[in-house]
Design a protein around this nucleic acid. Sequence first.
DNA 1: TCATGTTTAAGGCCAG
DNA 2: CTGGCCTTAAACATGA
Length: 620
Amino acid sequence: MPRPSRESYGDQKPAYSYISLTAMAIWSSPEKMLPLADIYKFIMDHFPYYRKNTQRWQNSLRHNLSFNDCFLKVPRRPDRPGKGAYWTLHPNALSMFENGSFLRRRKRFKLPKVDKEFLQKTLGSSFPSSSPGPMTSITPTPSSPTTTTTPPATHPNNGLSMSMSPPIPGMIPNSAFMSSQFSHMGGHHQFGPIAFGSHPMFLNSNISDARLLAAAAAAGYPRDLYGHHHAIHHHPHPHQHPNHLSNGIQQGFHSGPPPNIVGMSPKDLDDIREATRAIRSLREQSGKLHRIKPLSELDLSPPPHVLVKSSHPHLHSPPPAVNSETMKVAGQDVQPREKSSSANSLLTNQQRGKRRGGNSNNFSIENLIAKDKDSTDNKNIKDRKAVISGKDSSSGSDKLNNNHGCKNEKSDDDEEDEDIVMDDDEEEEGRVPSILSDSMSDAATDDRLIHLDNLSTNENDNESNHSHNSSERSQSHSPVTIPRKNLLVSPSPSLSSPRNGQYNNNGPSPGVVAVSAGNLLPSYPFYAAAFLSAQSLLYNQQYFGNGTGAPNPAQHHHHHHHHQQQLQLAAAAAAAAASAESGGGGAISPSSGHYPGHPGLNMSNPAAAMLFSGKHLSGL
DNA sequence: TCATGTTTAAGGCCAG
DNA sequence: CTGGCCTTAAACATGA
Ligand SMILES: [Mg+2]
């Protein structure tokens, strides 16, 4: 059995919360998304502790996936049938790991005034600019050749404003150092007649991609894709009619030539390609803004996905026993759950804040884990004794307060709007801690990409309402709440849940979370990005696109309906991804390791991978 | 029946 | 003491 070593926790319970473990697994995967079973596997492979009592922790893990908004479910690509869906991280959740460690969530940091002033000066007036601001300068994406990226607004239906928002330029001011909590400042949904351009969600983002993609998907693109035939997944629902789904969204069927594998006509494909080009240029530009470090500073350790596969060197022999917890764990108990496992438990918030890692050059999970372990070891030892000796204290995992869970991101964040994501301090490796350390632009860029707005559909959304005693805090300002459940559902006043803030009057619902295209990092999996942004747009349109500016009445659909929509979106996203893969700009080719938009960049080269991944991935 | 998801409850800790 | 977080337990639902 594995024994604890610098690199591993052996049988001891690792100091990571389920959220951390899951994020690690997801983020270290090649596509930044994994099916449930693979998440399990990752955890078990890396942490022997979890090879036991699987039912127990897996149940918890599943709970976390569903419950926390930072985890998003992305349906499988039609061309890759399989068991469940893929799970990925909400783009905004990435910032939680900025400090390079999954150990604990950074504590809430308030932007020190000093920094604030600095920002003011540096960014000038634009800093707090609440309004959408300039963004005017359009920078036609270079990459898109003649075929201009500004596609003809051809798309049917969407009353989407066709103006392409500038890729990067104008955005900096606004969200540069602002966390998502600020982004809403620009205003509230004033959707006019479907003027998505004005929707806060797209305030600073380049919606061209999502717009087209979503338009395509919403229009019922791959229309007959899943109907009876189609090998893909069968789908025996005789009753379901493939075409019945577009709820009100225009059915832009292009009947024409036989659908290709993805069920699209040539025209459809052209449109998708167009969208793809836009997406590509967006990504390229985003990528350029990333801080590029000299190779010399990079570590050549293999990329995560490689490591993951490797055997686990560090698991070896037995441990020091101890584990009082182990024993306890075995005995299931309900309440006083096992003992703490330690590790976690022993960190104080302070320590948590200290995690560092910044852009560590160690682009490997093993290294990360080792680092984290080091940081907590000492402490644990001591505490462990205490624990053993008598008290138990921690529960389950104890104290990890990590919380990356963006559950309903609300309250916490705001509080004052001043918090931003930075870590407090400390740096090891001499690096300056916060994002401020990097060049302004970098930081700005990164931050922007990560944070941007979440769509906060007005505070009236589901959850907030029922504030009950406790939850009342939902803030007045900072409407940055991501609707827990999809926008289709109405906020019926149900009142259930109390203390856990677990409300949900939506009934069984497909957790659709708003995701702004602008939040999708260049390194974000293309397919997932396409799907999420399209889905978000689609729901948004369904909810607000009535021209009145007011939300549409809730629509409750049979879950089958939702399922069909998912399939459509998945197909559209897959088509875009496929196009991107072949045309350039999008996903990394699994086979060649090349990133289409970056010819010279071969992702199989760890340094390249690191480079391209950008600092947000520094952790992993 | 098993795997995958969703949710509601409830107990423990910790910072404030 | 309390609100926010993290775990666990469990009831349920759905599809393979
Ligand atoms: Mg979720």
